[in-house]
Design a protein around this nucleic acid. Structure first.
Ligand SMILES: [Mn+2]
Ligand SMILES: [Mn+2]
Ligand SMILES: [Zn+2]
Ligand SMILES: [Zn+2]
Lengths: 136, 136
DNA sequence: AAGTTTATGCAACTGAGTTGCAAACTATTC
DNA sequence: GAATAGTTTGCAACTCAGTTGCATAAACTT
């Protein structure tokens, strides 16, 4: 668990057994997962502990949260270099067939021209459609 | 209430007293409103009736819903010409100061190049920041 | 080891959204 | 215009994601 521990400590998160487990699960995922998805990966687990673990991870920018419009917030690992700044923002994709939510980490959110006197802090962009796996 | 009635009937919604009231309230708004916002505009009201009224309006494309990430879906009137097709989609703006959600009806959602074999059905784009009213 | 801080587990709650069902209302048929 | 059928409304009760309070357990500090 040395690598997992390093990832945690490098984000100033104390490496507990629980947190190692959660980070390992998050690392395995190819799609973003919700709190209840995560809960079901454990045989016995406490939702609140997982909830607070995700909160801690997010506050320390180990993961970012995605509101994909399904009603449950999804979480995915940040890249090593990510500081969750505007320049780290990317488009997310929700597949209406497999119901999976993906980070399109290579697709930055296009800039838009707001009306005068509007200032930007953050942008959420979620594309809904069918993913490459589900397109035949 | 002739004008209100016409708007309802032109979208194939039977004009009841309740629906006229709700449409009038929606018409007055400069920002999108949530179900509970709407509920509070009545002295005595039933949340479920308002809920179903909004559902009916949305199904018939009189209004569209906006998931602005605040946890409560907002609703705003569609333009007369709107058919809620991809070409009618526009950017939405959430002001972190006044907490209001606005339709930027004139700003279409920029197109993006998805990875191969991904197909688009729909896009949700919400910009968070400070609106012109709140920027002094 | 004793004391302090931090993490975990359980219970209980909030708030948005939703369903079932009966009463009220509206439209249609005779 | 009354009888009937279909639609809308109001109330109660529920689901589900997220959240808080508090007591116990574990981890650091001296
Ligand atoms: Mn992402
Ligand atoms: Mn809009
Ligand atoms: Zn898919
Ligand atoms: Zn504002």
């Amino acid at each position: 668990m040395k690598d997992t521990d390093d990832k945690l400590t490098s984000r100033n998160i104390k490496p507990t057994a629980m947190r190692e487990l959660v980070l390992d699960i998050l690392t395995e995922q190819t799609a973003a997962i919700s709190l209840s998805d995560l809960e079901q990966k454990f045989h016995k687990s406490d939702k609140v502990t997982l909830y607070r673990t995700l909160k801690t991870f997010e506050e320390n920018k180990l993961i970012h949260s995605i509101d994909d419009g399904t009603g449950a917030v999804k979480y995915a690992l940040c890249k090593e270099s990510c500081q969750c700044h505007p320049e780290d923002l990317h488009v997310h994709f929700f597949c209406i067939k497999c119901q999976h939510t993906f980070c399109l980490s290579d697709i930055p959110i296009p800039s838009i021209n707001l009306p005068v006197n509007f200032s930007i802090e953050n942008i959420n962009m979620v594309v809904k459609g069918v993913c490459s796996n589900c397109n035949e």
